[in-house]
């Protein structure tokens, strides 16, 4: 019996190691390629023949706008993260704690709106932003505005969390003379740290991947690109060979801070995702 258990465990470990190799392989390749000295696109070997830092030097050099794109993305991510979290907290509190006319209707309307594909409205949003002069050179505030404006509809997870805080606490606070605003500020927010971190984290990560809308709004204006737009163009040009190793290096520089942040807040992410999945 014991021997059988050992064999089963050994098989499990082999499977897990295999899975880990498959999961890590692309990242491993990405790192190695970013240090590759010889030029060219994909090559048939994994370990570079010539180790070099020149891809990184290129990114930070004067020929490249990488730093500009990087700071663009960082600015968008920071603003979206903060503002979106505020909006979601406000909406969640109102929907979770207060009962007002049209509450159910509002939630149903938002549910239905969410069933339309996001890209449907792309042209219309573009012209709305253009009318506000928030395209091309103004694409950064434009993108922030778009991301924040509609974020109220993403209240599910946060409201679900607020719902678990007993309403008896609210009632007690009201008897003590607290206003609704005070309850939100002094009671609900301090009790909801995990979900607030989760909301902010998810909002922070999204802009790093935003290719579609960001490229449409920037409309070829290079200074307004975010990293996803700029670097995707590197890979999709016909002579991507020249830029492939630079893409890998840039990808590493993008991935490291985001990954570190995510990993350090992983606990909250799991909590939010699990809670959201069960409550729907």
């Amino acid at each position: 019996m014991k021997r059988r258990k050992r064999i089963v465990n050994a098989i499990c470990y082999i499977v897990l190691i295999l899975i880990s190799v498959i999961w890590l392989f692309p990242f491993f390749g990405l790192v190695l390629q970013s240090f590759r000295g010889e030029s060219g696109g994909m090559v048939s070997y994994l370990v570079p023949q010539e180790w070099s830092m020149k891809n990184y030097q290129f990114l930070f050099g004067s020929n490249s706008k990488f730093l500009k794109w990087y700071s663009n993305t960082l600015i968008i991510a920071l603003f979206v993260s903060i503002l979106q979290t505020i909006v979601i907290i406000c909406v969640s509190y109102a929907l979770s704690r207060m009962r007002f006319r049209g509450r159910k209707a509002l939630m149903n309307i938002w549910l239905v709106l969410g069933m339309f594909p996001g890209f449907l409205t792309m042209i219309c949003l573009y012209f709305l932003l253009k009318a506000l002069h928030l395209t091309e050179a103004g694409a950064i505030p434009g993108l922030i505005l778009i991301s924040v404006a509609s974020s109220g509809m993403g209240y599910y997870v946060c409201k679900g969390y607020f719902d678990t805080i007993p309403r008896a606490l609210d009632e007690a606070a009201i008897i003590d003379g607290a206003t609704r605003a005070q309850i939100l500020w002094k009671m609900i927010i301090p009790m909801s740290k995990p979900i607030i971190i989760y909301t902010a984290l998810v909002a922070f990560m999204a802009p790093w991947c935003d290719y579609i809308f960001a490229s449409y709004v920037a409309f070829g204006y290079e200074n307004s690109y975010n990293v996803a737009v700029a670097m995707t163009r590197w890979v999709w040009t016909n002579d991507y060979q020249g830029f492939f190793t630079r893409f890998c290096a840039g990808g590493i520089l993008v991935a490291i801070p985001v990954t570190v942040l995510f990993m350090s807040l992983q606990k909250y992410y799991v909590e939010g995702v699990t809670g959201g999945a069960v409550k729907g």
Binding site: L30, M205, W208, M231, T232, V235, G251
Partner: peptide, 11 residues
């Protein structure tokens, strides 16, 4: 999940 998809998927 952590690494932005445009990096990992393009690669």
């Amino acid at each position: 999940i952590a690494v932005p998809q445009f990096v990992s998927l393009l690669y």
